[in-house]
Nucleic acid binder design. Structure first.
Lengths: 240, 240
DNA sequence: TGAGCAAGTTAGTCACACCTAATTCAAATG
DNA sequence: CATTTGAATTAGGTGTGACTAACTTGCTCA
């Protein structure tokens, strides 16, 4: 706390040492968001970052420049951003924290899966790596969080397989639910009520035209769901 | 995040509503420190607050005025500060968080008692009340943290008995260790090596003049300790 | 009683991370 | 190829919580 003024660039002296940036909460959130966007597109657009973080696009421009200066991402004006190796490492560290915390809250403290996201969102910035590792150990080093998202390892590896969306299945195809969006408690409660949880088997029966509702089957039961929902459920195709 | 600008005073409209201040990390730290100081003195001095928080006294003056405006403390220039009921409530809430977290880390995650303070210091600002309650339940609602400090209840009650310091014993007196300072890992490890833990029985054998070392006995063993150490160990006199 | 001094305060800055409004850029369209 | 348009940026500003330097206050002791 005495050394809050530690942001001067500091020429030479040490051999660069740009890895030792201490990441504030907001910075970690930017990196997480950018990592997430990059999984789909190849460069993250200012607007999209702004939307995920619920802040004004103008704010993103400024922050992104600072992060680029710190070597966490590559940035060319008007061209979007890409994480550097250091940035990706930092993002994965935060994502690991988030997912371990979610898993721990559910498995060790009896939280319901629909509410852990918010709590994890705050704790991920405060927990030490040591704490995260202890939590992971305590619940048996799970490989995914309660919503099916893969947990990066201590050394930053993560299962990056790209699953398809339930909305992309063709009628008649059967698939295993692997992952669902973790943010919206309402959605999660609804999914649970349908039994549409990770590891459930789902079959797409038919799809109404013009982005209409999908008819699906989950363990015998038949439901109609909208495309918005079906886009938030990731699946892995099962052999017929 | 969209309503960051929620700090305008807002006249009338609602019947005052000054309880709904959302406490930032620094604010919680101020309140904790002031609560702590008030336990000894009757009003907290600017300098002392500054020292505990490791910031400049000038910074305290400004902050303290803001806290007074928010109804968290009473403040008269040059006279020190006192917590209001609301301020005390907020302080105790933070202290409860801190101590429950410390106890949980030790009892549920196998942390050693000398290192939990730092971790708790960060987590206490991020954990929800619900999480704290779950942690407390999981470890059987302990009444003290690992260093013997009493844990305030959900509704803000706390055992405020004033224990005496080991350094205040008279030669020949026997006492029960109730509590030790929680901040310094070095000190804690040393205390552990002497067996000077909460619930240990200690006897003061003699005290060298001029603030000299004290000779104590802990379970048969005899040690010489300095007054600085003896001041950080709180005890409860045992009947002879 | 008044001089000295430590404690406390004010004044003026700064970094951070956000904001709105105004502007610039790039890419698509006529 | 000029224009439109939406994305992105810059300009300028805010609140928070820290800082240093310069000042007041009030208390103690001669």
């Amino acid at each position: 706390m005495a050394e809050k003024r530690a942001s001067a660039p500091r020429q030479s002296e040490t051999p660069v040492r740009e890895t030792a940036v201490d990441l504030t909460g907001p910075v970690e959130d930017y990196l997480k968001a950018i990592y997430d966007i990059e999984r789909d597109q190849q460069a993250a657009a200012t607007n999209e970052i702004a939307q995920r973080l619920q802040i004004a696009p103008a704010s993103v421009s400024g922050m992104v420049r600072r992060l680029a200066e710190q070597g966490l991402l590559e940035y060319e004006r008007y061209k979007g951003v890409k994480l550097t190796a250091a940035g990706r490492r930092a993002a994965l560290r935060t994502i690991r924290r988030h997912r371990v915390i979610e898993a721990y809250l559910v498995q060790a403290l009896g939280y319901s899966w629909d509410v852990v996201h918010e709590e994890a969102e705050r704790l991920e910035h405060a927990a030490s790596d040591d704490l995260i590792d202890r939590m992971a150990t305590a619940i048996g080093e799970p490989s995914t969080d309660p919503h099916g998202a893969p947990i990066p390892t201590r050394d930053g590896r993560v299962d990056e397989r790209r699953h398809r969306r339930l909305s992309e299945l063709r009628p008649g195809q059967r698939a295993l639910v692997t992952r669902v969006g973790d943010e919206d408690p309402e959605l999660l409660r609804y999914l649970a009520s349908l039994g549409l949880l990770p590891n459930a088997t789902v079959t797409l029966d038919e799809r109404a035209p013009f982005e209409g509702p999908l008819t699906i089957r989950v363990e015998q039961a038949r439901y109609q769901v909208g495309t918005a929902l079906a886009e938030r459920v990731l699946v892995e195709l099962l052999p017929d």
